[in-house]
Design a protein around this nucleic acid. Structure first.
Lengths: 355, 355
DNA sequence: AACTGATATGTAATCGGTTTCATTTACGAT
DNA sequence: ATCGTAAATGAAACCGATTACATATCAGTT
């Protein structure tokens, strides 16, 4: 057995010797203190502190079959929606005594599958955020380890869903009331449940209000993707756009700014998640997805599943919340605005022709 | 010992019995097959497959002291600098066969210490990003487990530093050339090495160019903190401000916008990290800190330390890169600008008095 | 035929905890 | 005084691997 030249960490035996008790007593002082007298617990704790003893999770895991770890798998750490979610989840897991493995699937289905497999042995359960993986594979993993899915509605699997149907419907209504009659929805990954849900909500709301709607795809939900789709967006003639998330919305706004178009004067923009919305200028009309809360709730749900022997499956819904801010408004009229728009249209056309 | 209702996994003993060999032989068939005859390995492998045996990582870790895991500890997952760094680190760790624990210390020194202690047994090493912990404690942890520090210059500890001295000096020069003679530096956490380094760079550059400099503290590097310090910032009379990072810079810009002040017309702003800089309007003059690369390099350094028995300590420096964009420029003159500024000054004064 | 060294495998200790079961002690009831 | 019972603690088995050491086998030397 090769041991490094590092000083060895204090073990339960060292504490037992120091405190003059058996290893069993030390163990109980930490995991079942109510079995011991206050004095003994105190004595053991004091020795532990003196020696810098921390119970070894690996040994504990081997002995109990519980690792005290959970894994959190997200499609993109860099996306602030997921950072916020991770933050909420990690904090909650820590508060409940669990450590968190982090997996970034990079929006990649196969990588997601691999991560799930690799980590399975070391964790008590998984939280799988906005999985791109197909249902069958998710079911297979869920059969081996408790697993909670975020933003994917799979029967028989514990899941937590941020419902944005109502909020997106409300957003469309808001835009209609501002006088918009042609809108666009800029979507994200096909496999994203949230995307499907939002696209559908917008579509049926558009139908309901009798307005024209165009669907556009941004593939990956990012600032760049949002920026990149401004051309096709403008060519639709839409005066208002709903984006799958705040990042895409921000990209769209910056793409518009580059064409010297103003928000909301020339075009209104709605985002989703409320994660960078207040830091933007103009502040973004969006849907609050309660990201951190969602992360924390997912952990709660997972730990609840863990503590019960029976594997109940649960379906929790968190409702999004529409928040109107400064990025939506009535179309600006007047000569100045008109000039601005025709200039932008010209540029777009040139770009389209040069391809 | 409570076992879940999930199927129990096959163990080494079951395989040994099935194959008619000892447990040691089974172990060797997986970790040192060259010690056995081809026939034995074949026989054991066949039994393993028949029983669905996979070596238990936890037991292996306890026995060998190697877990195949590393931990990444950051002060704030929500800060995009750290998300970017995590993304780089996690990807690199995965590529080298390691799984990653994530710890968020929430800018809290004690929590950082706890996380380090709690995870120590489960990981082969740590990457500690921008630690707020005091040197002595960091040394104590490093004595137990290989540890690489990011952005903290501690002798005898492997570290990777993003050097921004040159870039901040260059930034000051850039501002001087634009005609600014009074500047402010808005700093972050006291314990942050990057903050100290940047403050010092700016201070000495200011000296060198003979301009007036005021230091302001934002405590936590966040959009809100940046926004909150706009009042004290303006009362200094500075016409250019360098922020500890992009978030604070963004907060400052949005605080200025709220006072109807324009960037760079009324005040120039420089950030650091280049993480949200291109998504902002105006695009932010900043220092590229090569975040993802820094994360990946930290992992490389850690794994290199792990593979060598001798614990060499290394000090790697990544140079920041000054990038001038649209948030810096000469002071706008003319009546309009003058009115704007005096109005803002009035508001500030009112706020100060009402306190 | 005895010896040597290499090769293949088994035995058992070990990693650092948890937990079952046994033992000791104290105390109130009979 | 004796018994029963509960509370506090210890002894030792156990979790599932790895590995130092011991042993057995076999080919090649002398």
């Amino acid at each position: 057995m090769i041991k490094s030249d590092k000083a060895r960490a204090a073990t339960i035996s060292m504490v037992a010797d120091d405190a003059g008790v058996s290893r069993a007593t030390v163990s109980r002082a930490f995991s079942n203190p109510e079995l011991l007298t206050k004095e003994t617990v105190e004595k053991v704790r004091a020795s532990a502190i003196r020696l810098g003893y921390v119970p070894n999770q690996v040994a504990r895991a081997l002995s109990t079959g519980r690792s005290g770890n959970i894994a959190l798998i997200v499609p993109d750490i860099g996306n602030p929606f997921f950072s916020a979610l991770m933050r909420g989840a990690q904090a909650q897991a820590y508060a409940r005594g669990y450590a968190t493995f982090l997996g970034d699937s990079d929006e990649n289905e196969a990588l997601e599958d691999l991560l799930l497999g690799k980590l399975a042995a070391q964790v008590d359960g998984f939280v799988l955020a906005s999985p791109r993986l197909d249902e069958q594979r998710i079911r297979a993993h869920a059969a081996l380890k408790p697993l909670v899915v975020i933003n994917r509605d799979i029967a028989d699997i514990s899941r937590i869903l941020v419902d944005t149907v109502g909020s997106f419907t409300q957003a469309v209504k808001h835009l209609v009331e501002l006088g918009h009659t042609t809108m666009a929805y800029v979507g994200g990954p096909k496999a994203s449940w949230s995307n499907q849900q939002r696209a559908q909500a917008v579509t049926s709301a558009a139908h309901q209000y009798g307005i024209r709607l165009v669907l556009i795809d941004a593939v990956r939900p990012s600032h760049e993707a949002g920026r990149a789709c401004v051309g096709s967006l403008l060519s639709t003639g839409a005066t208002a756009v709903l984006a799958i998330d705040d990042l895409v919305a921000q990209g769209i706004i910056s793409g518009l700014a580059a064409l010297n178009l103003s928000v909301p004067g020339d075009i209104s923009v709605v985002g989703c998640d409320n994660i960078i919305a207040t830091t933007m200028y103009p502040s973004l009309t969006t849907v609050d997805a309660h990201c951190a809360e969602t992360g924390a709730k997912a952990i709660d749900l997972l730990l609840q599943t863990l503590s019960q022997q029976s594997q109940s499956q649960d379906r929790k819904v968190i409702n999004g919340e529409f928040i109107a801010r400064a990025s939506t408004g009535p179309l600006a009229h007047g000569e100045e605005a008109f000039t601005r728009r025709s200039k932008a249209a010209e540029v777009i056309e040139q770009l389209a022709n040069s391809k």
